[in-house]
Design a binder for these strands. Structure first.
Length: 886
DNA sequence: TCAATCACG
DNA sequence: ACGTACGTGATTGAA
């Protein structure tokens, strides 16, 4: 029979403790920005969600143990003695557990002198069986004594999510005991964790046997004289007092003087704002972003402030002010192609929403967009600019971009979702895109147009609000300049580069495709022959079986899931079987074919024959750009076979050339500058080959001619290592030498370059003190693990602390150069277009007659972009295709 | 959706 | 003793 009500009683103390140990080694991974451990909170949260979802209780309570002493101590001083001290990492989380419960809207209770068990026992026992079904959750088996017809006791087995459901029937089946006999079991067997003595030499097994025969502790002692002489009998008689004491200790008081009544425990749902506050404080970002979608049911609806907006079918002048926010909605990432499904904007006083055609084809809207005296605030300037450009609308005077600002404030805030960015900055009045449009393949405009309109209106409002708010944050971080002089202007430069696009010689790619297809088939057949069977060469799993099981080649490296078949492994196996070289060859060509030939063909825009990458400006942790759809920053160059792909990148006009300029050793130059190391600086000032120079110092060689190519190679690897945040292991892997030798190299290097050594030490110290490191232009990267106790996490953070200012400052420099370059092309009225940025190089297309001008202008601009204490050096080249610009 | 692999700086 | 070089994106196969 189904009961009207369900009461969920959670043993908070026990579950919290279990939660603390639930995920092994989780201690250092779960820490909030203030260094508070959060692992127990995280696991407790998961358990709560699971239970609430599964049980859907009408009433709920979390009970805690109160203080150290209980009524049990009154008759047994040693109760719970001998427990090891609770770790401070656990204790510090307990106050926040109560905050979590408040967020969930779950009451908690504790009672002086009593344990959580007693509170739970009292409530469970007295809940009217006609009305209440009761579920108890604990990590402590003792509580199974509470099981009865309407009371189920869930005990956590592993972690906090796997549970064993104890009903009287289950206990009978598993132990042959009724619930109340669990107490007798403790009486006889004791419990070392609570320091309950029990009878000497009697454990669970013996106790079970005795209880099956005599029913209870009392029963055992009524019959103890009749037992035949044995050690057990002797122990029972000697420990009679202990047995009864133990039974008393293990007995849950089901009549404790609690002041809560079941009726008070009615569940009223989550307190969303408290919960948001809690998630933010704990840095539980995934929960924060899920909150909207989990709040579908009406009773858990997120409470947002009401919003006033107008849906317009005609645009008038009064709708715009001198300053305002504008938002274009697109449901897919690629704004070069995506449909605009709605437009919203605000003039500061009122908010307007319009169907795309209403706004985009309105002369008044167009005029507002391109009038520089109307200042605009947006979310993702580049996206907005490019999308409007497709309608021939120039968006001028973008004054603020909350996505870009949010990224600058914290490189971890790089969500594409406006509501997430807003929440990161304490603004909660926008729904997540997922909750409005759905996710994955099911993304679509909501059936009710008003849902869309309100969503867009809220976005416009959020942009306007946050624009004002985030400027103050940038100021606090001394990042106003970084934002206004670098990132915001750069976003416009990037927009133009993306819109220009790069011409791709499709017939050339198609010819390559035909050739590669034939070669792949050829190698494929050979591999099958050598393997003696056909299999999927692209599957590392199947390949592993062939190589290491069928052919019995030695296993050199393993991955998490099986054998590693990565290049470095295969190269070591190459001598042992001809199949290995064929596989390497196959891999190489298959990669070029699928990623570059076919991949590029797929993204060529039909009418222009160009590819239009998107530079992601708000993603990397260092300040670099990234390039997607297609990625034009990883076009092959190292191996000739792949390098030929570059022949397909051509100028978009007849008689034009591809032109390329790249910084020479920019990262090492940056290191020389920021470390101030005298020797390194001198080498650059003197225009020396830096790797040769390093080899000379490290190997103690007088003349550059005497540096062998091998020495230079090793010195180069050490230089790389220094930039990456050196470790002996990493270097040893790279150079294929022992760790000892690698460490020797590093020690010598740091000896010879004391300025670098000092820098590495200082930057780590700085990171530990501030919690972040910065670049030349005040870009910031927070390193949450820099003070972690976990060696790996801490080491990684330390290497990052060393690397980020180097990589990040180099990124700053080329960004400045790009902005300058765009300006210069304009002022010199050159036809040349900047097309690509690949971290330390810029690629242009230009009429042949402009090449001499570029050869002078581009290096000059790049070298003078930023003044360092050492010179920057740029090399240039040009040719008919990207391949030839080498 | 994740892991493995490999392309780039 | 711990187990790693720094920063990315696309494709593939296997759940």
């Amino acid at each position: 029979m189904k009961k009207k009500n369900k009461l969920l009683l959670i043993d908070g103390s026990s579950i919290a403790f279990r939660a603390f140990y639930a995920i092994p080694g989780s201690l250092d991974r779960f820490m909030n920005k203030n260094g508070l451990h959060t692992n127990a909170l995280f696991s407790f949260h998961r358990m709560l969600e699971n239970e609430m979802d599964k049980e859907k209780p009408t009433h709920v309570l979390v009970a805690f143990d109160a203080g150290k002493t209980t009524f049990r101590h009154a008759f047994y001083q040693e109760y719970k003695d001998g427990r090891s001290k609770t770790p401070s990492e656990f204790k510090e989380q307990m106050p926040y557990l109560r905050e979590l419960l408040q967020g969930f809207g779950i009451p908690h209770y504790e009672l002086d002198n009593y344990e959580a068990d007693d509170i739970i026992g009292t409530l469970a026992t007295h809940a009217d069986p006609a009305e209440f079904e009761v579920v108890v959750v604990s990590g402590d088996r003792d509580l199974t004594q509470l099981a009865k017809e309407n009371v189920r006791v869930d005990i956590t087995i592993k972690g906090v999510s796997e549970i064993e459901e104890n009903t009287p029937a289950y206990l009978m089946e598993k132990y042959g005991l009724a619930p109340h006999q669990i107490i007798d079991m403790k009486g006889l067997a004791g419990d070392s964790s609570d320091n309950i003595p029990g009878v000497t030499k009697v454990g669970e097994k013996t106790a079970l046997k005795l209880l099956q025969e005599f029913g209870s502790v009392e029963g055992v002692y009524e019959n103890v004289e009749d037992m035949k002489k044995s050690k057990l009998k002797e122990n029972l008689i000697n420990d009679k007092e202990k047995a009864f004491l133990s039974k008393k200790l293990a007995t849950i008081d089901t009549d404790s003087p609690i002041e809560v009544k079941v009726e008070d425990l009615a569940y009223k749902g989550k307190d969303i704002s408290k919960l948001i506050e809690f998630y933010k404080e704990m840095d539980f970002k995934s929960f924060l972003s899920k909150l909207d979608t989990t709040a579908h049911d009406a009773e858990n609806q997120v409470k947002r402030e009401a919003i006033d907006y107008e849906v317009v079918t005609e645009v008038t002048k009064e709708m715009f002010g001198e300053k305002g926010a504008v938002y274009l909605e697109m449901l897919s990432d690629n704004y070069h192609l995506a449909d605009i499904v709605g437009v919203s904007w605000t003039n500061g006083a009122k908010i307007y929403v319009a169907e795309p055609d209403v706004a985009l084809f309105s002369p008044i809207f167009q005029e507002w967009a391109k009038n520089p005296s109307n200042v605009k605030q947006v979310f993702d300037a580049k996206r907005t600019y490019v999308a409007l450009k497709r309608y021939d609308i120039d968006l001028e005077s973008i004054h603020f971009d909350i996505l870009l600002a949010s990224y600058i404030l914290d490189t971890n805030d790089n969500s594409k979702d406006l509501s997430e960015v807003a929440m990161e900055h304490d603004y909660y009045d926008v729904a997540s895109d997922e909750s409005v449009y759905g996710k994955g393949a099911k993304i679509s405009i909501p059936n009710d147009a008003n849902v869309l309109y309100e969503h867009l209106a809220r976005k416009a409002k959020a942009i306007a609000y946050l624009s004002e708010h985030l400027i103050a944050e940038l100021e606090k971080n001394e990042q106003i300049e970084l934002f206004y002089q670098m990132e915001l202007p750069l976003s416009m430069v990037l927009a133009e580069m993306e819109l220009t696009g790069v011409k791709v010689d499709a017939p050339r790619l198609l010819a390559m495709k035909t050739e590669f297809t034939a070669r792949l088939q050829d190698i494929e057949q050979r591999i099958y022959q050598e393997a003696g069977e056909e299999f999927n060469i692209n599957s590392p799993k199947q390949l592993g079986v062939i190589l290491f099981e069928k052919m019995n080649l030695p296993v050199i490296k393993k991955t998490k899931t099986g054998y590693s078949t990565a290049v470095d492994v295969l190269e070591q196996l190459s001598a042992q079987a001809p199949i290995v070289d064929d596989i390497l060859q196959y891999r190489q060509i298959a990669k070029i074919q699928s990623t570059y030939v076919e991949g590029l063909l797929k993204v060529i825009h039909g009418h222009t024959g160009k590819v239009h990458t998107r530079y992601v400006q708000t993603l990397t942790q260092t300040g670099r750009l990234s390039s997607v759809d297609p990625n034009l920053q990883n076009i092959p160059i190292r191996l000739e076979e792949g390098r030929k792909i570059r022949q397909a990148f051509v100028p978009s006009h007849e008689g034009w050339k591809m032109f390329s300029s790249d910084y020479s050793q920019i990262e090492l130059r940056v290191l020389a500058d920021i470390s101030g190391d005298a020797h390194m600086k001198q080498a650059f000032i003197d225009g020396e080959d830096i790797h040769t120079s390093t080899a000379m110092r490290v190997f103690g060689i007088e003349k550059a001619e005497d540096v062998t190519s091998n020495m230079r190679r090793q010195a180069k690897a050490v230089n790389f290592g220094i930039v990456y945040g050196i470790s002996d292991y990493g270097l040893s892997q790279n150079l294929n030498i022992t760790r000892k030798q690698a460490q020797q190299f590093i020690d010598t290097y740091l000896d010879k370059y004391p300025g670098v050594k000092q820098y590495m030490e200082d930057i780590i110290k700085e990171a530990k003190k501030d919690g972040y490191v910065t670049t030349l232009f005040h870009r910031r990267r927070y390193l949450k693990d820099i003070n972690a106790r976990n060696f790996n996490l801490r080491s990684f953070a330390e290497r990052t602390a060393m690397n980020t200012p180097i990589q990040g400052s180099a990124a700053d420099i080329i960004k400045v150069a790009m902005i300058e370059m765009a300006k210069e092309l304009k002022t010199h009225q050159l036809k040349a277009k900047m097309l690509l940025q690949v971290h330390d190089e810029l690629i242009f297309e230009a009429p042949e007659e402009e090449i001499p001008a570029l050869e002078k202008l581009v290096p000059e601009v790049m070298e003078k972009a930023v003044k360092l204490s050492i010179p920057l050096k740029v090399d240039s080249s040009f040719g008919d295709t990207w391949y030839d610009a080498k």
